[in-house]
Design a protein around this nucleic acid. Structure first.
Lengths: 266, 266
DNA sequence: CGTAACATTGACCCCTCTCAAGTGCCGTGG
DNA sequence: CCACGGCACTTGAGAGGGGTCAATGTTACG
């Protein structure tokens, strides 16, 4: 049990940034979670076209949201670190429009939709926080869309690194200036939409500028201000601020609409 | 009143594709809507940094989701047509992370958060459909992320056109092979992340292949199969299929969790 | 110590960019 | 009715970021 709660720590940490999560709510989440499962690297967690019966949380390790193009090219549209759900949206959308696969050894925890439903029914504040993180994920996607379409490789990579570091900090898995990022250059290429060769060159550029180190699967940011500047990185879009309504009072009795439309978004 | 219901027709149409919308629910939506407002082209509907007090629906005309980069470059990450909300997510995210501005004369209808809350409280099925379209919007964003990062201009443009036509069909504002698309080439450039010059050349290519016509703000698709092929366009991601749970029975008494977590997503 | 997987480098090419000039359309004012 | 200016669209030429192909280092590990 203690083991399981450790596994959910990153999620709790992330949710707590945006609003309080009561002990009771933590327990409810723990109860809804299945036994952890371990997957080796390179395994699919869910596949495009699947209709998952629950949501899967990454508890440890690194996974990626992957789409395959007609020409066989692989595209990574997001990295999932500890504390990220890979398919929370499948409950409404039903069919997965992308694959989630492990990039390293990964520990996952599964939450059946039925259990989630029961839990969120009872704890609307918690439901609200989960939806909020869902919306934040979309906000991050929008950000990536801008960056990927507009910035040259150097700036784009700076943004990717800063985003990764910020998100790792959010769930408490980062040191002051470094965090795990155990991917291959080819993975970065798939994530940035450039060739692996050019990833290599861009990386060298960033190193030559003494802005980052990246070896043995660990990212170290040497010049954060410089990186932020290059990437025009502003973590406002991660919505790190505390959400007024969730953290304190909130008139959200279960069943009130407070936990429905008002907490979603376009 | 009749006028107002005409304005909501595209929204109803879109929602109906995914689940039934009862007469009573339509009335509720109509009641929640403010008087329509008309804006000229080039006006901001909401600005980045705003904290809107409600959600705004485009009832007529064309708007765009815009972000401004440091170098002054404008990025369009989405076009909003009739039936699209421009800021539904602001209710949870609170602060807008992008601007929505009109590209033509636009008629908007405003829904105060409070009214939406009351309405969705009473009609969970309706709430569910609204959230669903919210999630579909994110799915479309993910799709754009893939396309924009991976495809050369010609294929990218093919995708943009097909997506626009499909969405226009969805809300009933398209003929068999054509729809309004009153933007400048410079807007297309901002949307695709390429220069206006190259938009022009790409457009000429597409025309030379007899695949599209585009004049006087109207798009006509001459070779849909060809376009779809170029763009690897598969409108599955628009989730046109009927949602089982929403359309028929559904055990969703108001207040049940059915309309909470289970209907959101990551 | 051989092999496989990943990182690095070099050479050459193409897509898209920028700069810059030219064309066409349309609304306004004379 | 025509001249004019503005705006959008076109076209041309040269430059550059990033792509591909292919070879060479470099580890990690059986």
């Amino acid at each position: 049990m203690n083991r399981k709660s450790d596994l959910l720590a990153p999620l709790f940490r992330k949710l707590s940034v945006r609003g309080n999560v009561a002990m009771e709510e933590r327990r409810a989440l723990l109860d809804a979670a299945s036994e952890p499962k371990e997957l080796p690297a390179g395994r699919a967690i869910v596949r495009e076209g699947d209709r998952p019966s629950g949501a899967t949380l990454v508890a440890h390790g690194l996974a990626a949201r992957v789409n395959v193009l007609g020409n066989g090219g692989r595209t990574i549209t997001a990295f999932h670190i500890a504390g990220d759900f890979v398919d929370l949206h499948s409950s409404l959308l039903e069919m997965m429009d992308h694959t989630a696969e492990t990039l390293t050894r990964v520990v996952i925890v599964h939450f059946p939709h039925s259990a989630l439903r029961r839990m969120t029914e009872k704890y609307p504040k918690l439901a609200r926080l989960l939806w909020l993180s869902t919306l934040i994920d979309s906000a991050v996607d929008r950000r990536r869309l801008i960056v990927s379409g507009r910035m040259p490789a150097l700036n784009h990579m700076a943004h990717l690194f800063m985003e990764h570091l910020s998100r790792a900090r959010l769930v408490g898995t980062a040191d002051r200036d470094s965090c795990d990022f155990p991917v291959k250059q080819a993975d970065l290429a798939d994530a940035m939409g450039i060739s692996a060769v050019h990833v290599n060159r861009t990386l060298q550029d960033l190193r030559a500028r003494n802005m980052v180190e990246w070896q043995n699967g660990r990212l170290r940011v040497l010049d954060e201000a410089g990186l932020r500047h290059l990437a025009e990185f502003d973590d406002t879009f991660l919505h790190l601020e505390r959400d007024q309504r969730s953290s304190a009072h909130v008139g959200g009795k279960p069943g009130s609409l407070f936990h429905t439309l008002d907490e979603i978004g376009s």
